[in-house]
């Protein structure tokens, strides 16, 4: 794990130079965007003028209320297409800048945190793995993401990316509404112990809100397996655990593992959804905002902002150490 001081040095010596270069590119991008707007605006004005003049030639007036004014309608249709083209073109310009920025800055930050990690700005955790984790059980309607980080941290294989998942909710007759299931970082790591069952460690909303009654309903809910009541009261207050086997659940959630998960929740990640499925550890870390995105219309040459990128990636990678996943003293290598 890298410290903030180490990152500050890295910023001053390496990233600063890249950010200067990218700032120049950003200004060029902004210029190009405005240039495009002017050119397309010119085309639209010309189109409208041509439409008006042809109208006058045909109907004797710029706009004739008795006629269909076809030349004008054609001009407007072309103008609208031009606006769409403008958006597409500028969207492409912005995308290209963001891609270049990530490829240079985010990739360097990832490599700085750990040489063995790889970064891809456009890839993400595939939906099959998101579904396999079984943390969110709603049927996916839309699913996309970006910023995939993957590789091996010491002995543990990890990958994570930003994910946005949506579902459709039926509200009343014929009314369908899009609703988010999850926005944030989805993290997968190879777990250091072998196991057969399926286990879920979820935030304990019911017991927190309804106390004993909440616990009663937790016991009655069998969809995720048996309720597993653990002996750490602080852990029990924050999480509810379900799973297939009482003993195996405790084998995976040793006393120290419970403490570690609790520390993670109390520290860097206040919202945690965890599942243990098929030898892997899945963690969903919800975030409201879009992550790792540079601005196009404002300078990115800013230490605070870059540190934010670094901290989020560093904290996520350090889950491996925080949960002690590199301790491989059991039969799983």
């Amino acid at each position: 794990m890298k410290t903030i001081e180490e990152f500050k040095n890295f910023f001053d010596n390496v990233l600063h130079i890249d950010l200067n270069m990218l700032e120049h590119k950003r200004q060029q991008t902004v210029k190009l965007i405005f240039k495009n707007i002017l050119i397309y605006l010119g085309i639209i004005i010309a189109l409208v003028f041509v439409g008006l003049f042809v109208n006058k030639i045909i109907y004797g007036d710029f706009f004739n209320e008795q006629e269909y004014n076809i030349p004008l309608i054609v001009a407007i249709v072309f103008s609208i297409s031009t606006i769409i083209l403008l958006f597409q073109k500028n969207g492409k310009v912005i995308q290209e800048f963001i891609y270049n920025f990530k490829k240079v800055i985010i990739e360097k930050i990832v490599k700085f945190i750990n040489e063995n990690l790889n970064y891809s700005p456009t890839e993400y955790i595939p939906p099959e793995q998101f579904i396999k984790s079984d943390i969110f059980r709603d049927r996916l309607y839309k699913y996309y993401g970006d910023d995939l980080v993957s590789g091996v941290v010491d002995k543990t294989e990890i990958k994570f990316s930003e994910i946005h998942a949506w579902k459709i909710v039926e509200s009343g007759e014929d009314k369908r509404k899009k609703q988010p299931i999850f926005d944030g970082i989805f993290f997968i790591a190879d777990f250091h112990k072998n196991f057969n069952g399926k286990y879920f460690i979820l935030p304990d909303f019911a017991q927190k809100r309804f106390g004993g009654l909440g616990k009663f309903f937790q016991k009655m809910s069998f969809s995720r397996g048996k309720l597993i009541e653990l002996e750490n009261p602080d852990f029990e207050r924050e999480f509810v655990v379900y799973g297939s086997d009482q003993i195996e659940a405790r084998y995976l959630l040793s006393s120290s593992m419970m403490e570690r998960i609790l520390k993670l929740k109390q520290g860097k990640f206040p919202y945690l959804f965890i599942s243990l499925v098929d030898s892997c550890l899945y963690i969903a870390l919800p975030f409201k905002k879009k992550l790792f995105e540079p601005s196009v219309f404002r300078s990115n040459n800013d230490y605070k902002k870059t540190e934010e990128f670094f901290s989020l990636i560093n904290d996520t990678v350090s889950i491996v150490e925080e949960l002690n996943l590199n301790t491989r003293i059991w039969t799983k290598e």
Partner: peptide
């Protein structure tokens, strides 16, 4: 040694499960 570590950990988990029951 890895197998033994595993059994010890499983044993401790089984004892905790027993105590919970």
């Amino acid at each position: 040694q890895a197998s033994l570590n595993e059994v010890e950990e499983q044993l401790s988990a089984a004892r905790r499960a027993y105590n919970a029951a």
